[in-house]
Structure formats: C-alpha cells, structure tokens
C-alpha cells in the first residue's frame, strides 16, 4: 500500500468539511474492508490520496426503534444487524442478508453503510494495477463483454458497463423500503445507486450517510443468496421479498445489474394472490422476461437468469 493522508474526524460536519477541501481521490472509510483491498491491489487509476474514517464519530453505530422507524446507523457492523433480536424478529430478510454477507470476520468490521456503498467486484475492474482500464475507470471498453462474464449483468448494460452491484443487504433494504439519511438530505434507498466512477452510488463527494430509516414493518419477508461457496463469497444472485400486513409486495434481486434490481413485474404477479409454488414460479418467469445474456468468450451468464427465477420463487414462497 502507498501512503496517504488519514483523517479521524469526530463529527459528521468535520468529515464533510475534509471531503469538501479534498476534492480529488479522497475516500470515505467505514469498516475499511473494501477500500483496503482496493488500495493493496492498486486497482484505481489514480491512487487514493486521503481517507476520511468515520470510525470515531459518535452516534453512527446505533440501532434503535423510534417514531415509527427502525433506525440503523451507517457504521453499525453487519454482525450486529445479523444478531439483533429486534431485526431478526421483525425485519427477517435484513437480518438474514446481513448474516449471509461475506464472512463472520468481515461482518464484524464491515458496516451496513459500507456494504451498501461498496465498489463492484467485477474482476476486470478489480484486476491489479488498473490493468483493465475499463469504462468504469474512465476508459472506453467493458472487458467483460468480450471476456468471461459469468458473474456479470443480466439486466441492461447501463452505459455499457456489465458490472453488478454485489451487496447482499441491498435487496433487503429495498424491499423494506429503507430511507437513506445523509448530512444533506433524506431519500428512498433505490435512489442511492447509479453509474458512478469508480463507486456505485449517486452520493455527492462530501455527502455522508449517517443512518438508514426503515418504516416499522409487520409483514413477512425473506432473503435468499446463491453463491459458489456457502460463506466468504459474493452472491451470484441474491434476492429479497417483503409482503406487508396490508398486502403490499416488494421484490428485489441483486448481483444482476449495475444497481439492485426491483422486480415490479414479479410484484404484480404476487400482489393480492394466495402464494403457491406455481404463483412463485410465475413471478420469477415474469421477472426474467427482460433479462439479457452476455455470451462473451468464457462461461456465459445465462444461468444467472434461471438462478434469479429460482431465487424469486424461493423468496416469494418464504413470505407465505
């Protein structure tokens, strides 16, 4: 790792001020489990010059239920979400998603904010020394399209980048209708992501997530993740479904597109219906209708479409 300037602000404002004064190659460091790897492997075109750690800012590590919301601080470790009794009982899909993220150790350091804002795992993007200077890094090629795209996008090549969002907690947060609270504003979580270089969020440079607010939930929810291994792995596809007590249905899958993918067609199939295996399968089929395949020159990602269908089936049935 090259050296860099490191900041340990003690307030969000102080952190924002540092970011504002350092507009170039300065990154926020939450748990560090993503950025340290990025820096060790010299992945980015220009090396980070400064990191602003949120570790010493009080108040970002709380989980509380108040005012009709479950509030989760941005710096809450994933393990605390996975093992929190309140979340396990009422927001099951989020607890399960957190529990299935990465490995136990990474969940102790890795935070919910970091998990939702992490950079993509695309192996061209992540290749050491910026060897594949891809679209996402300001280049003009997505190497996955001519290479091995077995873990890449099946939904629309947004700006022709085939990378996917690898977050396990994202689909759970989407189906639970979470709000993102930053030092500047509050917005629905689906607005968080977009094509950005090199990260994956639409946050402004000096914008810091302080917490997530999830409306009190009393329905059923379910999360499922498929990966090569059962732990220490990113999803091939994951997904979550939540059905509120009043019958609203939300289904979201991830690792299938640049951002978490809301399956409104599948939701329409399920809404108001009695959940059966065939209904759940139909929901998956609907969701897959707009999916596309990258053939590439290696293993194609076509199987991910079936996998997504299977996962939608499972998470819908899980809300029965």
């Amino acid at each position: 790792m090259k050296n860099f300037k490191q900041y340990y602000p003690t307030t969000v404002d102080e952190a924002a001020k540092i970011l504002k004064e350092n507009p170039n190659d300065t990154y926020i460091c939450a748990g560090g489990t993503d950025i340290i790897g990025v820096m060790k492997d010299f992945i980015l075109p220009t090396y980070p010059t400064a990191l602003v750690s949120l570790d010493r800012i009080p108040g970002l590590k709380e989980i509380k239920e108040e005012g009709g919301f479950l509030t989760i601080g941005a710096m809450v470790p994933l393990e605390d979400i996975a093992t929190n009794d309140l979340i396990k009982s009422k927001y099951a899909c989020l607890a399960e998603a957190a529990a299935r993220t990465a490995s136990p150790h990474l969940r102790e350091s890795g935070t919910i904010g970091g998990n939702l804002c992490q950079m993509t795992r695309c192996w061209y993007f992540r290749h050491n020394n910026d060897q594949f200077h891809c679209l996402r890094k300001g280049g003009d090629t997505c190497y996955a399209l001519t290479g091995d795209a077995r873990f890449h996008s099946i939904f629309g090549l947004t700006k022709m980048c085939a990378a996917v969002n690898p977050s396990d907690t994202a689909p759970a947060m989407v189906v639970l209708d979470a709000k993102v609270v930053t030092n500047k504003r509050e917005f629905g979580i689906e607005e968080l992501w977009g094509f950005a270089v090199p990260g994956s969020t639409k946050l402004e440079h000096d914008e810091i997530i302080t917490c997530f607010k999830i409306p009190a939930f009393s329905g059923k929810s379910c999360f499922y993740k498929a990966a090569i291994r059962k732990t220490i792995d990113f999803p091939i596809v994951n997904g979550a479904c939540a059905i509120t007590a009043s019958g609203d249905v939300k289904i979201c899958v991830n690792a299938v597109a640049l951002s978490p993918h809301r399956c409104k067609e599948a939701e329409a199939v399920v809404k108001g219906q009695t959940i059966t295996e065939s209904l759940a399968e139909k929901a998956g089929d609907e969701a897959a209708k707009k999916a596309t395949v990258i053939e590439g020159t290696g293993t194609t990602n076509e199987y991910k479409i079936q996998m997504m269908k299977g996962i939608i089936k499972k998470v819908v049935l899980g809300c029965k």
């Binding site: 192996w123 061209y124 290479g147 091995d148 077995r150």
Partner: peptide, 20 residues
C-alpha cells in the same frame, strides 16, 4: 478462470478462487 481474449488470469485471490 482466464480471460480468453487477453489470456489473463481473472481470479488470482482467495475471494474469487474458492477453496472450501
């Protein structure tokens, strides 16, 4: 896993090369 266009190894780490 190799990229067949460039002949470059895509998974030289323990996240992407998956031992049990």
């Amino acid at each position: 896993i190799y990229d067949k266009t460039y002949g470059v190894l895509l998974n030289p780490d323990l996240q992407e090369y998956k031992i049990v």
